[in-house]
Amino acid sequence: MESVSFLRVIKTGALNFWRNSWLSAAATMVMTITLVIFGLLFLLFGITNYSINTIKNTVDISVYFKVGLDEQQIFKIRDAVQADPRVKEVVYISQQQAFDEFKQRHQNDPLIVQSLNELTENPLSATLNVKTYHLEDYPAVAQSLQDPQYKDFISKVNFEDNRAVIDRLSRILKFIVTFGVGLIAVFCLIAALVVFNTIRLTIYNRKEEVEIMRLVGATNWYIRGPFLTESFLYALGATVLSALLFTPIFNQVLPKIAVYVNPQLTLFHQNLFNYWYLMGILLGLSLLLAAVSTLWAIRKYLKV
């Protein structure tokens, strides 16, 4: 008996969706706009966040040792730096490694290759690349390496200070979040109100039917069912439309942005976001909006 009711509810809901096609189209469109705005803000947020993280990863301190220094001495300094609780990782690049990497990097430049071949000894120095856990610790850690006790071993301490860029990006991110949450809230409210009114009009049209249903002993869920089905169809329609609109963004726009932000990305890692993940979120959001506004609209008619 239950499955018979369930099928009847779905059928009635689908029929109403079709019969009120203009109302359905309006509700679906408003919901689509809400979803698209939500999706775009979500992507914008993600891209900014990703950019910040990429730039954060480029910040490190390079410590150049004097040429010909004993490796044991370097290790001692490395261990001392490593012991600092602010330090996340220390990578040691030996003189030979630095030379090989340099050669590798410039293998296509005949002039450099020729010059390197003429060298009798390695002019590059060994280095330590130091990363800290927190951005704000970089200046202090760099400062500590310039301490007089290291004067005889270290020739140069260098770090690229990207903190200004990171600060600016963080501010943009904060703005996107604040502004975005407000915008999404407004559009969710508009969408909920439109769905609410659409369903209320449908219920009003079928007021008599609802009244008779109650009198002959239909359960409240049986009465709500068709209206819920109808609004879930708006939600599904809106998700499908948004999915279609987001397809070119995912295929064309996002990979370009990803490569622009981080040129080292390979072709296979250019998708910053999972398409289906975002569509899942949009579907969830639209179903939630539909359910809340429908149950709210029908409440009055179910008071016993």
Binding site: V4, S5, R8, E209, V216
Partner: peptide, 22 residues
Amino acid sequence: KLLPKRTAFENVAFAMEVCGHK
């Protein structure tokens, strides 16, 4: 309180439908 767009048969059947009869 009959549903105007349903026949006599459908009006009676409606009461049974909403209660889940086959």
